[in-house]
């Protein structure tokens, strides 16, 4: 079942064209990985889907044009987790996650909301952090807290910008397993920008390879991640090994001439 359908989506920052005529769709419970070099438009695309930026073209969520939705409706449909938190909210982890309930509640916070926040914390295994100071926790914990906040929004589509950046190996795997679990068990659809091609290959159902704001290639990781595409998009010579049915990219050297 198609959840998100994107057609002819373009966006420009002043004079620079950042995205040009993108067209793709996202199924329910699918994880779509956006890969491509820096400046290829991954973050811009995530912001365009959530209408943080206002693109041309159409974004349909379950058949409804996202452009016609109010900010509040959007917040109940999409949750966006930025790459780095510029947060200045002085408070506890619990407060930080509770903020995710904003689109659903009035001024007061009932028992039901506290239950929901706790449920999400349990799901991500961070309930011990509840009353810690949000400013004091580690980068990996912070990433999980931001994902927990996004889940509290009860969105249909989760938009993640580099969820594993700045995380150590264990936290990278933990965060990606959590996201995979959410897609499998709660049928959440996920679009994530991701630099690590090997994590992308292992955890994403589909990859969208962006180059200079256009879709260079799209497909499942096995067919997409080949030395040829990687050379064409990143300008890097690489070997791709197939380990347990998952492509494993070993970058070798930067090409002398970029294609």
């Amino acid at each position: 079942m198609v959840t998100l359908a994107i057609d002819n989506l373009s966006f420009s920052y002043r004079s620079r064209q950042a995205l040009c005529g993108l067209r793709f769709s996202l199924q329910k419970a699918e994880i779509l990985g956006l890969v491509g070099p820096n400046g290829s438009g991954k973050t811009t695309l995530l912001k365009c889907i959530d209408r943080i930026l206002h693109p041309e073209g159409s974004v349909l969520l379950d058949g409804t044009d996202v452009g016609s939705m109010s900010r509040q409706e959007l917040a109940r449909s999409f949750a966006y987790v930025p790459q780095s938190s510029q947060g200045m909210l002085a408070g506890t982890v619990f407060d930080a996650i509770l903020l995710g309930r904003r689109p659903h509640i009035g001024w007061g916070v009932g028992e039901e909301e506290i239950e929901k926040v706790h449920g999400v914390m349990e799901l991500l295994g961070i309930e011990e952090l509840a009353l810690r100071d949000f400013a004091e926790i580690s980068g990996g914990e912070r990433q999980k807290v931001l994902i927990a906040r996004a889940l509290c929004q009860e969105p249909k589509v989760l938009l993640l910008d580099e969820p594993t950046s700045n995380l150590d190996l264990r936290h990278q795997i933990e965060v990606m397993e959590t996201i995979r679990g959410l897609a499998d068990r709660q049928h959440l659809s996920v679009v994530m920008a991701i630099h690590d091609l090997n994590l992308a290959a292992r955890f994403c159902d589909t990859l969208l390879m962006l180059k200079s704001g256009e879709i260079f290639a799209a497909g499942d990781p096995v067919s997409l991640l080949t030395p040829e595409t990687i050379r064409a998009v990143y300008g890097v010579d690489s070997m791709v090994r197939n380990e347990l049915g998952i492509p494993c990219v070993i970058p070798m050297r930067a090409c002398k001439e970029r294609e």
């Binding site: 943080i52 900010r71 999409f78 966006y80 930025p82 938190s85 909210l89």
Partner: peptide
């Protein structure tokens, strides 16, 4: 929490 997060929160 920043303009983008705030927008995303409605």
């Amino acid at each position: 929490e920043g303009d983008e997060v705030a927008k995303s929160l409605g």
